[in-house]
Amino acid sequence: MSIQHFRVALIPFFAAFCLPVFAHPETLVKVKDAEDQLGARVGYIELDLNSGKILESFRPEERFPMMSTFKVLLCGAVLSRVDAGQEQLGRRIHYSQNDLVKYSPVTEKHLTDGMTVRELCSAAITMSDNTAANLLLTTIGGPKELTAFLHNMGDHVTRLDRWEPELNEAIPNDERDTTMPAAMATTLRKLLTGELLTLASRQQLIDWMEADKVAGPLLRSALPAGWFIADKSGASERGSRGIIAALGPDGKPSRIVVIYTTGSQATMDERNRQIAEIGASLIKHW
C-alpha cells in the first residue's frame, strides 16, 4: 500500500482517536478583511474532515458561482459510474476541433488520438481543461445529471445548469451553476471519506486533486513544508474566484476548506493574494 493509499484508508480510523479540534476566530477576521479589500462577498467554511463538524464559517449558506470547482464533483460522478460498472477509466473518447472550447490546454493536443476517461478527469482537475469537462459531462448525461447525482448524495443546493464556458457567467442573483460553501464542503467530504465511492475511487479523486497544477498562487502558496493539500480552484466573470481543498499537517488531510468570492473589481492577482492570506491565517491558527 502506497503512502497515498495509506492516508485515505486511515481517514475513518483516525476519527475515533483524534484530539479535539478548536476553532480560531482570527481567520474570520481575515475573511472579513478580504471582503473589505476586494469590495466583494466572500464565503468561507472550515470543516473537520473526520467528524464533519463546522469549525468556522462566514456566509456559509449564501450562493456563489461554482466556477471550475464543479470539476471535482463531476469526476466524482464519473467515478461513481465506474464503480457501478457503467463506465471505464480506460475508455478512449474521440472528439473533433468543433468540440474544443476556450481554455483547453490538454485536449487541444489530442485531437488525433483522443483521450481516456482517466486522462480527461486528470486534465479537468489538474489543468482545469474546459473541453475535458464538457466531454465528461456528456458521458454522464449533461449538467442536469450532475445535479441529480448531487441530489442523490443529499446535496439539494449545488446545481450545474450549463456547459463550459457559459457556466462562468456569474450573474448576480442567478442561481444557475452555483453552490453554497456549507453544501460544497459537505459534499466534498462525502466524496473523499464516505461510502458513495469505493476506496480506490476515493483515492483516485484525491490523487487528481493533489496533482492540481493551476492553484499555486492560492492556499498552496501559504503551505508550510510537510503539509498535505488536494485542491481545485476556479475563476469566472465578475471578479469571481474560489477554491475547495482538503489539507492538513503531517502529510495527511484533516480539514476541508472552501473559499468563494464574487462581485469584485480587483485584479486576479489581488483576488489570489487575499485567498492566500486567508490560508496563511488558517495555518497560523491551526
Rank of each mutant, 00 (worst) to 15 (best):
H5D: 12
H5Y: 13
F6Y: 15
F6G: 08
A9L: 10
L10M: 15
A16V: 15
V21S: 15
L28Q: 06
A34G: 05
E35V: 02
L38A: 07
A40T: 08
R41W: 05
G43T: 02
Y44M: 06
K53P: 00
K53N: 11
S57K: 12
F58V: 06
P60A: 15
E61S: 13
R63Q: 05
M67L: 11
T69S: 03
L74Q: 00
L74H: 00
R81Y: 07
R81I: 05
V82D: 03
D83L: 00
D83Q: 08
E87I: 08
Q88S: 14
R91Y: 04
R91A: 04
I93M: 14
Y95G: 00
S96A: 14
S96R: 15
S96H: 14
D99M: 11
L100C: 07
D113G: 11
R118T: 11
C121S: 04
A124G: 05
I125A: 00
I125G: 03
N134P: 06
N134R: 01
L135K: 04
L137T: 04
I140F: 08
P143R: 13
L146R: 01
L146Q: 00
H151R: 15
M153K: 06
G154D: 08
H156Y: 10
V157E: 08
L160V: 11
D161S: 04
P165V: 05
E166D: 13
E166R: 07
E169N: 11
E169K: 05
N173F: 10
D174T: 05
R176D: 05
T178N: 02
A183N: 08
A183Q: 10
A183W: 07
A183T: 08
A185G: 11
T186R: 14
T187P: 02
L197F: 04
T198I: 05
T198Y: 06
R202E: 07
R202A: 10
R202V: 06
W208L: 03
A211V: 06
A211G: 12
K213T: 09
V214T: 12
V214S: 08
L218W: 02
L219N: 03
L219D: 03
A222P: 07
L223Y: 02
G226N: 11
W227L: 00
I229M: 06
D231I: 03
E237T: 08
E237S: 07
R238Y: 13
I243N: 01
A245P: 01
D250H: 13
K252E: 12
P253V: 06
R255P: 00
V258G: 03
G263A: 12
T267W: 03
M268K: 05
R271L: 15
Q274H: 12
I275M: 05
I275Y: 03
L282E: 02
L282M: 15
I283H: 04
I283D: 01
H285A: 06
W286E: 00
